[in-house]
Amino acid sequence: MAVLHTTNKSPLQTRDLESCLRLTRPGSGILLMEDAVYGALRSTEASARLAQAAKDRRIYVLGPDLAARGFTPEEVIDEVEVVDYGGFVDLVAEHHHVQAWV
């Protein structure tokens, strides 16, 4: 059973997502929430890195956090799946444990 990682900081501003990627194994799930949702957008300096990480990890972004910040699911890179809080709960239940990259 894989592990779910949550990260909540913008990768354009901090290196938390980078640490998370360095220390997560292929097959892990990563949920971008709060300010980390900016990392899921197209055409940013972080987009390519995330698309590459998505090759062997499942990456999710929290839709309500995206909407709150003025972005729509259409503006998210194809490799990332948009979930709501119910989806967040399901992800936690489906993974062995959760590691928060706070």
Partner: peptide, 18 residues
Amino acid sequence: GSAELSVLMDEQDVLLSF
């Protein structure tokens, strides 16, 4: 190393991060 450490982290039951 990070690869070895990530294996160890995955083997846990409860991860508390501060």
